[in-house]
């Protein structure tokens, strides 16, 4: 074989490869490596998130879509730790970093460094404000408002509400609460007469609600942030007061309680929260960006809603102690991207 023939062959190969790429207009990502940087793993939501990510990632790796998709969690929930973790990932040569951030701003320096090193950064749930990163955000304010909108359809006469908030000083807590107060301003028949911090945990919420209940008038509804509905119900029961309409947050214990109440006395409510599977959506978005797809920097993910009709199916598919979940696919990601364009 002469040199010219070899060159010809190589040129032919290159052309064929070029044609194949032009056909799908997307580049091959089978050599790319993706890492997940996570700041906290200490509750059921984050555990479900990590599991979903592992599932999606290992499938994608064995299908040859990407070369690696490792998950890292910082040992402490601190921005400085996560900044160091991101810098380590740059050193390890990852092509993309998927990020659930400890702080929306304190990681910007590290994120900028990643971008400058040519690494794609996709933040989700806990998003970062650095302009070079992509953001997959949940409209938490809309979620809060939807709770009040739902109450307005069920209780047209209105009444007094109890608000259970999340962890003080966290962005998500502010956003959901803002949405709830917007909703109350719109539906003037409602009035929030009490507000406690339940820290998104059943035990904390139960204690907090039990503490404030004696000082409250009749409550018709409880607006929550997720992870606190079951605790609130227990507190009402212990105080011997009628169970109000409690909006739930997709936790398995909440759904189980709801199903029990429904079977006993026809209890009706709504449950909504962000699905931990959003990590798999972030994975596919990162893959699409690596493949050369034009993706807008700001994407919105819908929240997962459970109604009276879907309760049984959701409860059946949610493991005990976990939270209702959906796993997003490549098609879902493409749909979200197309909607944002």
């Amino acid at each position: 074989m002469t040199i010219s023939k070899m060159l010809l062959g190589a040129a032919g190969l290159a052309m064929a490869a070029g044609l194949a790429q032009a056909g799908s207009h997307l580049a091959d990502t089978s050599g790319k490596r993706i890492a997940l940087s996570n700041n906290y793993a200490g509750n059921s939501w984050r555990q479900a998130m990590l599991e979903t990510y592992q599932g999606t990632a290992s499938e994608a790796v064995s299908a040859g879509i990407v070369a690696a998709a490792d998950a890292y969690t910082t040992s402490e929930n601190q921005a400085t730790e996560q900044a160091a973790q991101i810098q380590n990932m740059i050193l390890q040569g990852y092509d993309a970093i998927i990020l659930n951030a400890a702080s929306p701003t304190a990681l910007n320096g590290a994120v900028k460094e990643a971008c400058d090193a040519g690494v794609t950064v996709v933040s989700f749930d806990g998003i970062v404000t650095e302009p070079c990163a992509w953001r997959i955000a949940v409209d938490f304010a809309a979620m809060g408002k939807e709770e009040v909108d739902y109450l307005a359809t069920r209780l047209p006469d209105g009444g007094k509400l109890l608000e259970i908030r999340g962890l003080a000083g966290v962005f998500v807590d502010d956003e959901i609460s803002k949405g709830i107060h917007e909703g109350v301003a719109e539906h003037s028949q409602f009035e929030i007469v009490g507000s406690v911090h339940g820290d998104w945990a059943q035990d904390v919420a139960q204690k907090a609600v039990a503490g404030i209940l004696p000082s409250l008038p009749d409550i018709v509804g409880v607006v929550t942030q997720g992870g606190d509905g079951y605790g609130a119900a227990q507190a009402f029961k212990a105080a011997g007061r009628p169970t109000p309409l409690i909006v739930l947050g997709n936790r398995q214990d909440e759904l189980k309680w709801w199903a029990e109440q429904r079977d006993a006395n026809g209890y009706e409510t709504l449950s909504l929260s962000i699905a931990p599977g959003v990590a798999s959506l972030a994975f596919w978005v990162a893959q699409q960006i690596l493949a050369g797809e034009e993706v807008p920097k700001d994407l919105t993910v819908p929240f997962l809603k459970i109604t009276q009709d879907t309760l049984d199916a959701s409860l059946a598919s949610t493991p005990e102690g976990s939270v209702a979940n959906v796993t997003y696919t490549l098609e879902d990601a493409q749909k979200v991207i197309a909607e944002a364009k």
Partner: peptide, 17 residues
């Protein structure tokens, strides 16, 4: 120095220090 690196701050940024 920390702010120079992170470009912005957070009330809990250095608790580990």
């Amino acid at each position: 120095a920390l702010v120079g690196l992170t470009t912005s701050a957070d009330a809990n940024i250095a608790l580990r220090y």
